[in-house]
């Protein structure tokens, strides 16, 4: 996949936001920088503010306080909001709300067409996006006649075809079967090569093992961030944030209690198998 034009960061400074008529803020004083071409995973309980944070990055929601800039474009400035929006592209949590074109092929072409690209380039991108998401066999199907998992994949294809600087994914793997889930996760990791940043929200903690950095939200606050070892390695802490600890970290804890030391926090089954050798 060719590199998208602008390779910048997403900078979030002191961001707070409350929905109209709500007293409790959905986001409180968030500070973070998403670097170009890296893969981020956001974890947190229901209602912790994950979708709201993505809406802020996508400039659908403008923070009450603080500032977000995307590839140097400020989302709260009317002069730059369109540019900011163009640099990110989001797969929404509910795929029903995302698809608008009559057929899958037209749906995936919709974004690139809006970018004003040439027909040949559009066709190329559509072909590539269908291939990457494993949805080629659906290309002529009406979008309304798809299963929900298929809709999720098509929504992902549409976003890929835009080749944004950052791909935002709000629980976009939630309904995928094991084959499709593995394909999308590998794709997220591979997008590093095209310098496309990925910000992926999920309840499947295992998906976060492949991330460069993991962010944990709790009641609208960013309570922890770091590499997967730092953020997921301690099962008691993870559970305290309302997140399911990785089974491997629970097993490692048992080994410690039984008097064995493991060195670097294991996160995957193979880490434990290697330890026995």
């Amino acid at each position: 996949m060719n590199s998208p034009p602008s390779r910048g960061k997403i900078e979030i400074e002191n961001v707070s936001y409350a929905y109209p008529q709500e007293v409790k803020p959905a986001l409180s004083d968030i500070n973070f920088t998403f670097e170009a071409g890296a893969f981020y995973c956001i974890l947190g309980k229901n209602g912790s503010g994950k979708s709201t944070l993505l809406r802020c990055i996508n400039a659908l929601v403008i923070p009450d306080k603080g500032k977000i800039s995307i590839c140097e474009f400020d989302t709260s400035d009317e002069k730059t909001i369109t540019q900011a929006r163009k640099s990110v592209s989001m797969v929404f949590q509910n795929p029903q709300t995302q698809l608008i074109a009559p057929t899958v092929e037209e749906e995936v072409a919709f974004g690139p067409e809006n970018l004003g690209l040439e027909a040949r380039e559009i066709a190329e991108r559509v072909e590539e996006a269908l291939h990457l998401t494993g949805t080629k066999h659906l290309s002529n199907r009406p979008t309304e006649c798809l299963s929900l998992g298929e809709k999720q994949l098509v929504a992902m294809a549409g976003v890929l075809a835009m080749r944004p600087a950052f791909l935002l994914s709000d629980e976009s793997t939630s309904m995928l079967d094991s084959g499709s889930r593995a394909r999308i996760l590998n794709l997220f990791a591979k997008l590093r090569e095209s310098r496309i940043g990925v910000v992926h929200v999920t309840h499947f903690v295992e998906e976060a093992i492949k991330a460069d950095k993991v962010l944990i939200l709790e009641e609208g606050r960013l309570v922890k961030s770091g590499n997967p070892q730092e953020t997921l390695g301690n099962p008691e802490e993870v559970a305290k944030f309302g997140i399911e600890p990785l089974p491997v970290t629970l097993i490692a804890r048992e080994l410690q209690l039984l008097g064995y030391s493991l060195g670097n926090a294991p996160l995957q089954p193979d880490d434990l198998i290697l330890w026995t050798l």
Partner: peptide
């Protein structure tokens, strides 16, 4: 789908 650890 969509439920957190406690919800599940």
């Amino acid at each position: 789908i969509g439920l957190d650890f406690e919800g599940r």
